[in-house]
Amino acid sequence: MQRAMRLLESVARHEHGAPAKQLARETGLALPTTYHLLRTLVHEGYLRRDKGLFFLGRAAERLSSSGAQQKRRSTVVEALAHWRDAIGVPVYYAVYREGEIDVLCVADTPGNPAVEEWAGFRETAHAHAVGQCLLSQLDEEARRDHLARYPVQPLTPYTVRDDHSLLRRLDRLRRAEPVIERQEYALGTVCAALPLTVGTQAATVAISLPAHQADRLLPAARRLQDEMGRLLGSLTLSISI
């Protein structure tokens, strides 16, 4: 395994391919061993051979892509954990892609637990700050398409009552301002979400608090906004985890 990895690393350094003899010299492997390993790696799809030269194959490229994706995910997880500890609130990271809301990461603690998903987040975008913030970043056609698939329904006495009321609220939201939601998704909980847009990808970072701490919500959201400004570069690069 170790020798095969050495060969893969050596091939990766040659954008235009390399012959077996050169790879043997670079890795310090005997030529027969090199040929044997190269044949195996080609068979498994980690390398491909073209006119006597060896290149990385699709299997190796998938490994590289997977590693990069894991690194991006780690960046987001670390950022959320940092904000959770700095502000003392649960922090959520969600995106809107392919017509669906995905809550990708949540950072909380036993003392500050995340909101329990008692009604599916995807189906109830109208009722929580995460969903409202993501919908606010879409154009009117995309919003109406989402609501046609997931109609507004009351979850609590505070939930927006119909599509028209929700769309009016979304239109009134100011760009880059926190989206505030008070007990619309779950009684006893208030939430705030901040928009994060890179290219055509809509995303949000959000926080939640018990309703009896509602006076902390807006200051905490402002603090999160400041913290996000410091780490925005690394987070936006990780938006597609």
Score class of each variant (00 low, 15 high):
Val198Met: 06
Gln213Ala: 09
Val160Tyr: 03
Glu61Gln: 14
Gly45Glu: 07
His82Met: 00
Pro210His: 05
Met1Thr: 10
Pro178Trp: 11
Ala142Tyr: 10
Leu232Gln: 11
Glu123Met: 02
Leu194Val: 07
Thr189Pro: 00
Ile207Ser: 03
Gln70Lys: 13
Glu78Gly: 03
Arg216Asp: 11
Asp145Gln: 12
Arg62Leu: 07
Glu116Met: 06
Gly120Ala: 14
Ala192Glu: 02
Ile241Ser: 14
Ala148Cys: 06
Phe54Gln: 00
Pro219Lys: 02
Tyr185Cys: 13
Arg6Trp: 05
Leu8Arg: 11
Val115Asn: 10
Pro32Ile: 06
Leu187Cys: 03
Gln137Glu: 08
Val198Trp: 14
Tyr46Asp: 06
Ala59Cys: 02
Asp226Gln: 14
Gly131Arg: 01
Arg62Tyr: 05
Arg6Cys: 08
Glu140Asp: 14
Glu227Ala: 12
Asp108Met: 06
Pro154Leu: 07
Val130Gln: 01
Val42Met: 03
Glu78Phe: 12
Arg6Met: 11
Ala18Lys: 01
Leu56Ile: 09
Arg97His: 11
Glu184Ser: 13
Thr189Lys: 10
Arg3Met: 04
Val89Asn: 01
Ala221Arg: 03
Pro210Gly: 08
Tyr93His: 14
Glu123Phe: 03
Ser64Arg: 14
Ala94Cys: 12
Ala176Leu: 15
Arg169Phe: 15
Leu194His: 13
Pro178Glu: 09
Phe121Gly: 01
Pro32Met: 12
Arg169Asp: 02
Arg216Ala: 13
Asp163Cys: 03
Leu196Trp: 12
Ser234Tyr: 08
Ala4Ser: 15
Glu15Pro: 00
Ala24Asn: 00
Leu224Ser: 08
Glu78Lys: 14
Val190Phe: 00
Ala79Cys: 15
Ala30His: 15
Leu235Pro: 02
Glu15Asp: 09
Tyr96Lys: 06
Tyr158Trp: 02
Phe121Gln: 10
Ser136Val: 08
Phe55Trp: 04
Asp50Val: 10
Ile207Val: 15
Gln225Ile: 07
Arg172Asp: 14
Gln69Ser: 15
Gln132Phe: 01
Val95Glu: 00
Ala86Asn: 09
Cys105Ala: 12
Arg172Val: 00
Ser208Tyr: 02
Arg168Asp: 09
His212Val: 07
Val95Gly: 00
Glu100Ser: 04
Thr33Cys: 05
Gln137Phe: 02
Tyr35Trp: 09
Ser10Asn: 05
His16Met: 11
Lys51Leu: 13
Glu116Tyr: 03
Cys105Phe: 06
Leu237Asp: 13
Glu177Thr: 09
Ala81Thr: 07
Gly111Asp: 12
Leu135Tyr: 01
Gly52Glu: 15
Ser66His: 14
Leu8Ala: 12
